[in-house]
Design a protein around this nucleic acid. Sequence first.
DNA 1: GGCTAGACGTTAAAGATTTCACAAACTCAG
DNA 2: CTGAGTTTGTGAAATCTTTAACGTCTAGCC
Lengths: 217, 217
Amino acid sequence: MDLEEHTKIPQATAKRLPLYYRFLNNLHGQGKMRVSSKELSEAVKVDSATIRRDFSYFGALGKKGYGYNVEYLLSFFRKTLDQDETTKVALIGVGNLGTAFLNYNFTKNNNTKIEIAFDASRERVGSEVGGVRVEHIDDMEEKMGDLAVAILTVPASEAQGIADRLVDAGVSAILNFTPARITVPSHVRVHHIDLAIELQALVYFLKHYPLDEEEEE
Amino acid sequence: MDLEEHTKIPQATAKRLPLYYRFLNNLHGQGKMRVSSKELSEAVKVDSATIRRDFSYFGALGKKGYGYNVEYLLSFFRKTLDQDETTKVALIGVGNLGTAFLNYNFTKNNNTKIEIAFDASRERVGSEVGGVRVEHIDDMEEKMGDLAVAILTVPASEAQGIADRLVDAGVSAILNFTPARITVPSHVRVHHIDLAIELQALVYFLKHYPLDEEEEE
DNA sequence: GGCTAGACGTTAAAGATTTCACAAACTCAG
DNA sequence: CTGAGTTTGTGAAATCTTTAACGTCTAGCC
Ligand SMILES: NC(=O)c1ccc[n+]([C@@H]2O[C@H](COP(=O)([O-])OP(=O)(O)OC[C@H]3O[C@@H](n4cnc5c(N)ncnc54)[C@H](O)[C@@H]3O)[C@@H](O)[C@H]2O)c1
Ligand SMILES: NC(=O)c1ccc[n+]([C@@H]2O[C@H](COP(=O)([O-])OP(=O)(O)OC[C@H]3O[C@@H](n4cnc5c(N)ncnc54)[C@H](O)[C@@H]3O)[C@@H](O)[C@H]2O)c1
């Protein structure tokens, strides 16, 4: 019943929910009591109609002529986004990117935490990075426990092999930062974040999709 | 004329072009002469009809009953993606993420290169990271030259201030890794990459959008 | 030279997402 | 208590994107 409701929410909306949640948190921290879709729109750079539409998938959360009650909205999204339970995450590949993530560790206002990290390099294994213990990749299956989510920051050539092992170890979601497009069974969810491509795409848009003329402010 | 043609290409297609290019490069490196949309589809995980459609925006690049000539396609995309000229990029904020990017530097098969980096911390300034000199942020305007693209990896609280200065310095595209949604004039293009949100969204999908039942391979 | 299998390019349909625009419902000042 | 002013929630339209389906053309074989 609960799940079915959620299943109807468009993916595009679902991707914006954490953004809304974060900003509502800020507002709440500032002691703000109410907020309109217009205000929110300016802050998160999403059209106000889109915001109202997004919220409406969850029912009537606001009041006409008033806007949204920050506290109410926040507590609603806290439930919706499962902010009360922390999802434990594994990170594979403690190199440049992996180290950056471990130091950051998404803990600020998040419900995710990197619990354990793995690497193949003997020099890294046994150390702690950002408070997270680095284990040897050979011990992955043994030490990973029942973590459901993994961040993949190994060299591209290793990606598929490690992904296969992750799947066998019971992982059901992978955030893949390698350029390799990995193949997994259909019950596993993979999101690719391909930073090199993001940069190239930005440059392409810059050159081929002119925006407004330059105008001095 | 040339520009107008490109302007008609859907954004979704444009974002996939660097991906195609990278894979074609791999194929070419392996000495492969021809490739079909089906093969490409399996490698980059994009529906083959979508690939054919994407390519068709540029005209008839393939041959029926044969597929695409790798060399031809590659040289076509090289032109289209301006792979021959290197776009110089500045990076602001040499912290965890910034350091990772500098060490990587997108140089592998890319047309982008981080030329210069800036930071506020006296200990970092003057050093080199990944072969890139780190300058003090106070000297940014003076030392940036005419770079058009910047990567922003400063703390969120600094993001808007630095963005304003980047715009004044003539930057027209910003890749923003901070959680702050920055405001810029309409002639400046900003892409947000919000890693914390990507992770949260993945977890949300995992919990609320069940995929196929688990099945043993 | 003719035939078969394969693969493109494209039309059209379906699906997803965004945006417009406005009636209804509310707030708040006076 | 009233009325002016806000702001929601949502049909309907517009836009963008993906996918299916297939006619057409080519390669390669016999
Ligand atoms: N650093 C960046 O800015 C950047 C940008 C875009 C893409 N990427 C991609 O992200 C990935 C990681 O990049 P990076 O710069 O951190 O690379 P890196 O070489 O610094 O780190 C890779 C780490 O993985 C470890 N490793 C190697 N094989 C392993 C294995 N089989 N099991 C476990 N660990 C293993 C290595 O010891 C190393 O610590 C790469 O695929 C890269 O292409 C990185
Ligand atoms: N590291 C991650 O994994 C991660 C993940 C998600 C988001 N982010 C975001 O990316 C940004 C950078 O993250 P980080 O972990 O690298 O942070 P960091 O604190 O390690 O690095 C920030 C760097 O910016 C420099 N800096 C501060 N003020 C500056 C200024 N005014 N001008 C120039 N440089 C200045 C600091 O000296 C520091 O070196 C942050 O906004 C963070 O929220 C990081």
